[in-house]
Write a protein that binds this DNA or RNA. Structure first.
Lengths: 234, 234
DNA sequence: ACCTGAACACCGTTCAAGT
DNA sequence: ACCTGAACACCGTTCAAGT
């Protein structure tokens, strides 16, 4: 049990303070403006104290990323609890992902940053483990819905071996789409529609390809999207 | 017409020399070891001369990225020329992408780096335009195959409006998968199969979802993969 | 006209000194 | 035991001087 002393709670509070300051600095002025010096000034502690909390700038940024994944897990859990068919609940996870990153573009920037090897190399082993454990939680939620779909019969059990392939396909489609969107490629200029909309179409096509019942051909997908998104974010 | 003088050719050659040096440095020691100083030493010119060729370190890295996209266009064109159905040719593009980045992991690292806003902000307008024009070429190749599929009837023409949505879905799925693979997430540890394999499965499911004929259910997909990949890379 | 490298600015990180 | 900030190392970028 974590019987936190007053001291520990104060430290914890200061850590949040630092992270909040860093996040708001990122939001307002971008990554290149974010310096350890400036963070220290903002929270009115010395640089040494910041380093007392975070082993490096990269660890600090990775901590921001962990907070963001934690938020995602929250939304994913709401999606998991959505009252509907397995397909609707799995779709809800996609919508949760898609809308969360759309509403918090800075968070997706951050995810992108941490994925970069140049940054990643400098992250401490412990922080990486912390982040990977959060990532595992995320995929576990998605996997369990696929398993339930097979158990119920919404998804043919010949896919039992491909369980993680389905999750991976769905994940990578959303991940890729949102990164493409975030990374400044002028998609509209290349003749593409809004990303959230294309994602919703393609997610349905993908699940249709797996014959996940009920198919989108017998569903009012536009209305379903509205229902799910208001259930998740209102 | 570019009637290049001797001087211009020498400059061009030196630029390639610099890029080669930078690329090999990236391969061998990673992004954090790559310095303008070290590049200058390696090619035996001064830092000032390097800056004569590239406005900034980020521009240099972006130029590496452009070379990589140019290579990709090459492979994509071979995929376009593949003798087979429209579906096979479109699949060939996915395989080209997938295998190229698998064979050149450093290139996918580089793409990832350039997508990052912190880096992107520092790239000069001209370089960005150069890169975007290459990216447009890539999507154009993919789009034209989809158009041909609709014209021939391999793909129902109700998808005429979704033409770019199909390309985008296919692109984002591959892009996301390969970035997830490249970015150090321990996929196997999370219970996933090799990425190229999952991608091939999911790409087929995706195209089946769009009812792109002939469906994978009437195809020996494992053999097709072999055929296409040896046509592209041997 | 082009090349050079010393000098500058900036920033992440450390650690001796202070409380 | 914890905090501080001067000092250090490193690197991208510039530009006056040289050829």
């Amino acid at each position: 049990m974590t019987t936190s002393t007053r001291k520990q709670r104060e430290l914890q509070a200061r850590e949040e303070l630092i992270l909040d300051a860093a996040q708001s600095m990122l939001h307002q002025h971008g990554y290149n403006y974010l310096t350890m010096e400036r963070i220290a000034e903002t929270v009115e502690y010395s640089k040494g104290t910041i380093y007392n909390h975070f082993a490096s700038k990269e660890d600090l940024v990775c901590s921001l990323c962990c907070r963001c994944i934690t938020n995602l897990i929250d939304v994913f859990e709401r999606a998991y609890q959505y009252r509907g068919s397995t397909r609707e609940r799995f779709s809800a996870i996609g919508i949760a992902y898609s809308l969360y990153l759309q509403l918090n573009p800075m968070d997706s920037q951050n995810i992108l940053t941490v994925k970069n090897n140049a940054i990643r190399e400098k992250i401490s082993k412990e922080k990486l483990i912390e982040m990977e454990s959060l990532e595992r939680e995320i995929t576990t939620i998605a996997k369990s819905i696929v398993q339930q779909a097979i158990d119920i019969g919404d998804l043919d059990n010949k896919h039992q071996h491909h369980l993680s392939t389905i999750v991976f396909g769905f994940w990578s489609m959303h991940y890729g789409a949102l990164l493409l969107d975030q990374s400044g490629i002028p998609l509209e200029q290349l003749g593409f529609s809004p990303v959230v909309q294309m994602l919703w179409t393609n997610a349905n096509i993908f699940l249709d390809g797996y014959q996940w019942q009920p198919l989108s051909t017998v569903t009012d997908t536009a209305r379903l999207f509205e229902k799910i998104s208001s259930a998740l974010f209102d």
